[in-house]
Write a protein that binds this DNA or RNA. Structure first.
Lengths: 226, 226
DNA sequence: ACCTGAACACCGTTCAAGT
DNA sequence: ACCTGAACACCGTTCAAGT
């Protein structure tokens, strides 16, 4: 709360880029993208606003560094199991990581940020696809589909609805005229559970992996079972 | 450009909510979310900034109205063909609509906006899933997967890379050390084509529909061929 | 009633001045 | 060198005053 707690270095004669980025990440995780301003962060660190411009060219460069710092706490799963198990495990670990740092998703949406720190995971997943028998073109496309679904889920379907949201959604759906919206009304009791969260993410992920596997089998002449 | 062109009504004694929303949409389509400020929009309409607050409680309410207005130019495809063809046609039409109004995607990311205007499409897709034999719970989940992939694609993979971006991406990938990143290097020539656009969207969509169909067949006792 | 300028509490960043 | 206050050109919105 007070300037000292942020870094324990209130004199600020020797901040590092990493210290600044870590403090920014803390604010972002706590209060979201809107909560972070240069003025605010400087205050938190106990330095003048313009001091930050000695470490970073501007806010964008700072945010890039924050994404790098955030990437470091990605927890890679053990590489055990077959093609399918590993693909699911890596995707789920990525999903959970993005939920811990929602601003990475928002930043990726505003403008493409490709940070080298995440390359390790990309390499692993791409290798899985190639090993499974997909050609490099097919593998590149499949990889990108997984990436798009992952980020889409993290942004548009991060969590299950709260009890209040469930009630509101159900009420909204059931208030629709029966003749025009029979399908929405029929699915209404299940809509809330499908809005997001781990189970919903896994459901879609399994669909996509099914599709990838079907394609894989189509490409390797003989379709092997499992 | 000049105040008159926006609505042809520079005296502004009788603007309507819709006129204001349309003018806002025009600015958004032209210059993106960052380009729209209340002050700017008021200037474009030839009225004082605070006049807008007579039509909308605040910026958020204005943006909700803009999404409604934008929804009106969604072009629904003809409902011809089977389950698969129609699902693909509706998804593709939605993708193309979102690309025409990128701010809908950005707004949907910042906070959940569920606008009634889009309910017609939802009803149609949900009905397709139910007709195909999915139970209501399964249909709700499948629908949400399609929704998430659609919005994810519109935000994270809207278009193919430009020639410059292709070159930059290829160079970046090929500069990686061969021992640590063999898979990325192998897929590098195809990475650019997979970054986004219509073909990539369709590739992933087919994967997902494959997965949904597989589930459908699993639920209806006998798996029918096509 | 309807419209709006001034003011408030914010932004990111430039620039010139402090030590 | 390193740091920073004042200033500039912006925001969204409140409030009181104009007609």
């Amino acid at each position: 709360m007070s300037p000292e707690t942020a870094t324990g270095n209130r004199r600020a004669t020797s901040l590092s880029r990493e210290q600044v980025a870590l403090a920014a990440l803390e604010v972002l995780d706590r209060e979201g993208l809107e909560g972070l301003s240069m003025r605010r962060l400087a205050g938190e660190l106990g330095v003048g606003t313009m001091t930050l411009y000695g470490y970073f060219r501007g806010k964008r460069e700072l945010l890039d560094a924050v994404v790098d710092v955030a990437t470091e706490d990605f927890v890679a799963p053990e590489p055990v199991g077959g093609f399918r198990e590993q693909l699911v495990a890596y995707s789920l670990a990525s999903f959970e990581w993005l939920l811990r740092h929602p601003m990475v998703v928002q930043l990726r949406g505003e403008e493409a940020i490709i940070r080298p720190a995440a390359l390790g995971v990309s390499e692993r997943v791409l290798q899985l696809l190639l090993d499974a028998g997909l050609g490099p073109e097919e593998a590149a496309r499949a990889f990108r589909v997984l990436f798009t679904y992952l980020f889409g889920s993290a942004l548009f379907a991060p969590r299950e609805a709260t009890e209040d949201e469930r009630r509101a959604l159900l009420a909204a759906h059931l208030s629709l005229p029966e003749e025009r919206f029979p399908a929405i009304r029929e699915a209404a009791p299940y809509a809330a559970a499908a809005t997001g969260g781990r189970d919903q993410f896994l459901y879609g992920l399994e669909c996509i992996v099914d599709g990838i596997e079907a394609r894989k089998d189509r490409y390797s002449a003989a379709s092997s079972h499992q």
